[in-house]
Amino acid sequence: MDFLNAFVALSNFVLIPAIAYGSQLALGALGVTLIYGILRFSNFAHGDTMAFGTMATVLITWWFQSMGISFGPLPTALLALPFGIAVCAALVLLTDRGIYRFYRRVKAKPIILVMASLGVMFIMNGLVRFIIGPDDQRFADGARFIVTAGEFKKMTGLSEGLALKSTQAITLVTAIVVVAALFWFLNKTRTGKSMRAYSDNEDLALLSGINPERVVMVTWLIVAGLATIAGVLYGLDKSFKPFTYFQLLLPIFASAIVGGLGNPLGAIAGGFVIAFSEVMVTYAWKKVAGYILPEAWAPDGLVQLMSTDYKFAVSFAILLIVLLFKPTGLFKGKSV
C-alpha cells in the first residue's frame, strides 16, 4: 500500500484536470444562469457565443504573434482576450437589439425566446465556420508546463509524476479572479444590485425606477465577457474547434440546472459537480487501485466505469437525476 503515490496519481489524472475543466464549465454555466435569471430563457446560443468570442481572440492572438508581441511565459491569448471580449460583446448586443428586444417588448413566451436563440446559434455557428473554418486550431504559446512529471519525480523521489500544465494554473487563477469580481459586482455595486432586484422581482424593480434596458445591456456585456473567457480558457487547455463548443452546451446546461438555474453560486458548484463526475467516471482507476489495494487484490482490468466517448452521458445522467429528485437544483434556483 502506497498512499502517497496513489494520491499523486489521483491528483495528476483526476483532481487537477477536473478542477481546470470545472472552472471552465462554471464560467460557462454562470453565463447561462445570468441570462436565465435576468432575461428568463435558456440561451441555446451560449456555446456558439463562446466559440465566437474565442475565435475573435484567436484571430487577434495570431495578429499579435505575427507582429512579434508576446506575453513572456504566459500565452499571448491573454493579451488578446480583452479585444476578443469587446468583439463578442458587440455581436451579442447587436443580436439583442435585432432579435431578443422585440420578443421582450411583446412579452413572448420563454419558449419563443429559446427558439430565437436557436436561430442566433445557427448564425453564430455559421459565422465562426465561415471565418475560421470548422477545423481544430491551436493558439496556445508560452511555457507549456509549470512542473513536468519528470521534474516532479526528481524533486520528490516518488515513482508517480505530477504534471501541472501552465494552462491549468492560468484557468484556475483567472476563474477565481473573474468569479470574485462578478460577485463583488453583483453584491456591492448599484448596477449589480439593480440586476439582482430585477431578477428577483421584475415588477417591483420597475416600480423602484430601475431601467430594464440598462439591466439587460449590462447582463449581455457580462455574459459576453464570461463566455469569451470560458471559451478561451477551454481552447488554451485543449484546442479550439467550433463543433466541440456546440457540444459543450450540454455539460454547461447540466451544470447550471444541477446548481439551480438563476443562482450564480449554484452554477459554480454545478460546474465542479459535473466536471468531477465526468472525469471520475471516465478515468481508468487501475493505477490508483494498484497503489492502495494489497498486491493480491490488484485489478486486472482498467477499472474504467465508462469509456471517455460517453462523457456526455455522465452529465446527462446527472441532469436526469437532478430533474427527477430536485428540479430546482442543489441550490435553490428559480424554475420548477
Binding site: F41, S42, F44, K109, P110, I111, V114, L249, L250, F253, A254, I257, F312, S315, F316, L319, L320, L323, P327, S335, V336
Partner: peptide, 11 residues
C-alpha cells in the same frame, strides 16, 4: 419547465 424538455432531448 418547458425549457427542460429541450435540454433533455438535446442530451
Amino acid at each position: 419547465r418547458s425549457d427542460y424538455l429541450a435540454i433533455a432531448t438535446l442530451g
